[in-house]
């Protein structure tokens, strides 16, 4: 049986080799498992050239993708308190401190003002790397101030969402951010200003159940997970496995919740067209 053992060893060796791909040079597509040269991804806005899978991207990349050069970051001075003195396996205060020391000073959302294809906009982008982009008081307050800023400038407001949901560490105060941001969006709506919600992977929980679903247009990136309850929670509750594509962008479009699924390379052009359609031109 020695030949059998040998073969097995060989197989492990191959697998290990794929795992040990040098960080930063090649990247494995999470959907089709193909190896992609990282530099190639830069040209494709972090979309797999083989299968079209949209990798999650950071705030800077998102802003570069959407905004014209030269935006200004707003409300960076806001810091989260620890209103409940929350302690689980670690203390919330320590968690926040560590993140701050690691250079994460914007909490889970960055709000900027600038232009998009020449049109003035206020844009907020959520950051999944910061506590799964959970919505605490700072997120809520920044988003509210962003809406106020758009109102002041009489310009459109864009929120690029991704979030695990409310921030448990801030308890019911976190829940109230849903109401707060929605109330600010109501003001924008009343003033007749456009609000576009861009949903990216994953947008769930309280964020989906508030501002992410309230856009004049809800625009989603392909195959993003979007839903209120997470798929695992649903599966455990109903004791059934979920259909393929459940809670993905395309599913939401079919079910009437998303206006359009737009690929990342067309996103800026599409948003610019929407804003042009919505915003009075000099001729109006």
């Amino acid at each position: 049986m020695s030949w059998f053992v040998k073969k097995r060893q060989q197989k492990t060796a191959v697998e290990e080799k794929t795992v040990r791909v040098p960080e930063g040079l090649w990247i494995k597509c999470e959907a089709c498992k193909e190896l992609i040269y990282r530099k190639e991804l830069v040209n494709t806005h972090n979309v797999c050239p083989k299968c079209g899978y949209h990798f999650r991207i950071g705030v800077e990349e998102r802003l570069e993708n959407l905004m014209d050069e030269g935006w200004t970051t707003l409300f960076s001075e806001l810091r989260s308190g620890d209103p409940l003195g929350f302690v689980s396996t670690k203390s919330y205060k320590d968690q926040l401190k560590k993140l701050e020391q690691a250079g994460e000073t914007e909490d889970a959302v960055v709000v900027v003002e600038g232009t998009l294809s020449g049109q003035p906009v206020v844009t907020a982008v959520m950051n999944f790397d910061f506590l799964a982009a959970s919505m605490g008081s700072v997120v809520g307050e920044k988003l509210r101030l962003g809406a106020e800023r758009a109102l002041e400038k009489q310009c459109p407001y864009l929120i690029v969402s991704c979030s695990g949901g409310a921030r448990m560490q801030e308890g019911t105060l976190s829940l109230m951010q849903m109401a707060k941001v929605s109330a600010a969006l109501a003001k924008l709506d009343k003033a007749g200003l456009p609000y576009l919600s861009i949903l990216t992977d994953p947008t769930t929980g309280g964020v989906s159940a508030s501002y992410a679903m309230l856009g004049d247009l809800n625009i989603a990136e392909p195959k993003a997970l979007i839903g209120f309850a997470g798929p695992r929670v649903i599966e455990q509750t109903i004791k059934q496995s979920l259909p393929e594509g459940f809670q993905r962008s395309e599913f939401l479009q079919t079910h009437g919740m998303v206006d359009k699924v737009v690929t990342r390379d067309h996103l800026k052009d599409f948003i610019a067209a929407c804003l042009a359609w919505m915003t009075p031109s000099p001729r109006d």
Binding site: M213, L217, N218, Q253, T254, H255, G256, M257, V258, D259, K260, F270, A273, C274, W277
Partner: peptide, 12 residues
């Protein structure tokens, strides 16, 4: 023409 989808209630 940019098509938009859905009733935000049930379906498209």
């Amino acid at each position: 023409f940019e098509e938009l989808h859905g009733d935000r209630r049930f379906g498209d």
